[in-house]
Amino acid sequence: MTNHAHDHGANASARQLGIALALTGSFLVVEVVYGFISGSLALLSDAGHMLTDAAALALSLFAIRMGGRAADKKRTFGYRRAEILAAALNAGALLAVGIYILVEAYQRLREPVAVQTTPMLVVAVLGFIVNLISARLLVSGSGDSLNVRSAYLEVLGDLLGSVAVIVGAIAIRLTGLLWIDPLLGALIGLWVIPRTWALLKSSVNVLMEGVPEGLDLDHLRAELAGLPGVSEVHDLHVWSVTSGQHNLTAHLVCESPPDDLLQRVQALAQKYDLPHSTVQIEAPGLHDAGHEYHDDEDEHKHAEWHP
Results as ranks from 00 to 15, higher is better:
residue 71 A to G: 08
residue 122 V to T: 07
residue 89 L to K: 03
residue 30 V to M: 01
residue 80 R to P: 12
residue 116 Q to Y: 04
residue 63 A to Q: 15
residue 117 T to N: 12
residue 115 V to A: 06
residue 38 S to C: 02
residue 38 S to I: 00
residue 99 I to M: 02
residue 87 A to Q: 02
residue 95 L to H: 01
residue 68 G to Y: 10
residue 77 F to C: 10
residue 115 V to K: 00
residue 102 L to D: 06
residue 56 A to I: 13
residue 107 Q to E: 09
residue 36 F to T: 11
residue 93 A to D: 15
residue 75 R to C: 15
residue 66 M to T: 02
residue 47 A to W: 03
residue 108 R to C: 09
residue 65 R to K: 07
residue 54 A to N: 12
residue 52 T to E: 03
residue 119 P to A: 01
residue 45 S to Y: 08
residue 121 L to G: 08
residue 113 V to W: 13
residue 115 V to Y: 01
residue 70 A to M: 14
residue 36 F to S: 04
residue 103 V to Q: 02
residue 92 G to H: 07
residue 72 D to V: 12
residue 107 Q to K: 12
residue 64 I to T: 00
residue 97 V to E: 03
residue 51 L to S: 05
residue 36 F to R: 00
residue 104 E to L: 09
residue 97 V to Q: 04
residue 93 A to P: 10
residue 65 R to N: 04
residue 101 I to Q: 08
residue 65 R to H: 08
residue 52 T to Y: 04
residue 40 S to L: 13
residue 43 L to K: 00
residue 47 A to G: 15
residue 75 R to D: 13
residue 69 R to N: 06
residue 69 R to L: 11
residue 49 H to E: 10
residue 40 S to N: 10
residue 65 R to E: 03
residue 51 L to R: 01
residue 95 L to K: 08
residue 115 V to E: 00
residue 103 V to M: 09
residue 107 Q to Y: 09
residue 69 R to C: 15
residue 54 A to F: 06
residue 72 D to F: 12
residue 107 Q to F: 09
residue 112 P to Q: 05
residue 51 L to P: 00
residue 80 R to G: 14
residue 44 L to F: 07
residue 97 V to W: 09
residue 55 A to D: 00
residue 52 T to H: 01
residue 31 E to D: 05
residue 99 I to T: 06
residue 57 L to Q: 04
residue 85 L to I: 15
residue 80 R to M: 12
residue 52 T to S: 02
residue 89 L to M: 14
residue 119 P to Y: 07
residue 88 A to L: 14
residue 61 L to S: 14
residue 99 I to D: 03
residue 70 A to E: 15
residue 83 E to Q: 14
residue 81 R to S: 12
residue 95 L to M: 15
residue 61 L to D: 05
residue 121 L to A: 11
residue 111 E to T: 13
residue 47 A to I: 13
residue 73 K to L: 12
residue 33 V to D: 01
